[in-house]
Design a protein around this nucleic acid. Structure first.
Lengths: 238, 238
DNA sequence: TAGTGGTCTAGACCACGAA
DNA sequence: TCGTGGTCTAGACCACTAA
């Protein structure tokens, strides 16, 4: 029976690991995993091999070992804030996210954008300006600048609703972000778009989004202070 | 010579691990670690034991294994924002942090603070209000509410400069934080303390700080918008 | 007492990188 | 060719938990 589980091509600890992962998929926290010796019997491998498989699942946070008791499905750990965009943020709050493209074109990078994208001033960048609504009310004006070299043909074929979905489809969703958040007042143009008075209080949010060492996105957003509060979770342990 | 390194009380993989950690402390990224077989010889242990020791250091991010080459000091990974307080934040910016205690007393928890600290309304909490300066200029008014049960005698013996240092000394430095950030205008009392006009733009920052499952700190800070921008790094990969 | 995970041994063969 | 880390074996003894 063991032969059905080991095909000779897959590494044994990987086979055991994926077997256990499938077995416990969807199981409630606290559900017991097979014991190490049971997996040794089932797969006909050494115990160290089973431990190597389980070690991986423990470090992933899927399993939890309790000496003298056994191995169990761990309760999900608290996770720090993911790197999300407006669309996901609104969905998380149960609000309807809408976007109206005000501008989508190639431009020459100004000094600030060029530095943030690790380009030279005057290099071509994609500039995408949107008015973003939550439940129909203007919430935010966002200017996103994208590295054109990484996104050939991005402006063709219609703009997507979610920038991060579009980046993810190209394997370029940021895995690292450097954000700055400040309070300020709205300039005339911003105020008109956000349907507030010039000088109304706003929250300014800038982001530099990287995947690996490459900056793919620089954005500057201005939020109506009366319609938006930023939430951030920090830390790892739970 | 091996006997000098193993005292029989310490677990062997721990002895090997700490030997390697000390050996490589302060070494530049890319510096080679002893090979696994070299450590086997030096400590007279099995190779699996050495691998267990090195596995820990690899998962800590200190070491990096390169198959066929060896094991090396890893370059430091980018880390998400730590959970810091005002003092550390100012130091990070190269500014002098000063604090003036406006209030430090036991109070009965109001509904919001009680809920955030997982207490019952009316339970005793420690309330610490400070005016915080950076390079001598008022930057922030912070109200911190602390769970008195976790911090017996905290108000005696003089207030520390850094709340987070004081919590760390008790093993209660938050490992998880839930923050909210919003733009607003200063109320009269805040404006007077911050030396701005009533109605001036401010950044409001609330935090719930936990260690494990216990909430140890709830704070509400109001920052002068012209003196403070918040910075956050998100993500894990580098 | 029986079962669990934690630690440890003394080997083995492999793919890969550098010389 | 030689050294490296990656994988794997077939056992062993320990402390701890639960019945």
């Amino acid at each position: 029976m063991e032969e059905a589980l080991l095909d000779g091509r897959t590494l044994k600890h990987v086979a055991v690991r994926e077997y256990v992962r499938d077995l416990l998929a969807g199981q409630a926290p606290g559900s017991p995993a097979p014991s190490e010796r049971e997996l040794v019997q089932r797969f006909g491998v050494a115990r160290m091999t089973v431990r190597q498989a389980l070690d991986t699942l423990v470090s992933e946070g899927l399993l939890e070992r309790i000496p003298g008791r056994g191995t169990f499905v761990a309760r999900p750990k608290r996770m720090p804030s993911a790197i999300t965009g407006f669309t996901e943020e609104m969905q998380r709050r149960g609000m309807l996210a809408e976007s109206q493209t005000l501008l989508a074109r190639r431009e020459q990078a100004g000094p600030g954008v060029a530095r943030a994208l690790s380009l030279t001033e005057g290099d071509a960048v994609l500039h995408w300006r949107r008015l973003r609504r939550g439940d129909g009310v203007p919430v935010c004006v966002e200017d996103a600048y994208l590295n054109e070299v990484l996104l050939p043909g991005f402006l063709q074929g219609g703009m997507p609703t979610s920038l991060y979905d579009a980046l993810a489809a190209r394997g370029l969703r940021p895995t690292w972000a450097e954000d700055s958040i400040a309070a300020d007042v709205a300039m005339a143009e911003e105020a008109a778009l956000l349907e507030v008075a010039t000088g109304a209080v706003v929250l300014r949010h800038s982001r530099r989004g990287l995947v690996g060492d490459k900056t793919v996105e620089v954005s500057r957003s201005v939020y109506r202070a009366d319609r938006f509060t930023l939430w951030v979770q920090l830390g790892a342990e739970g």
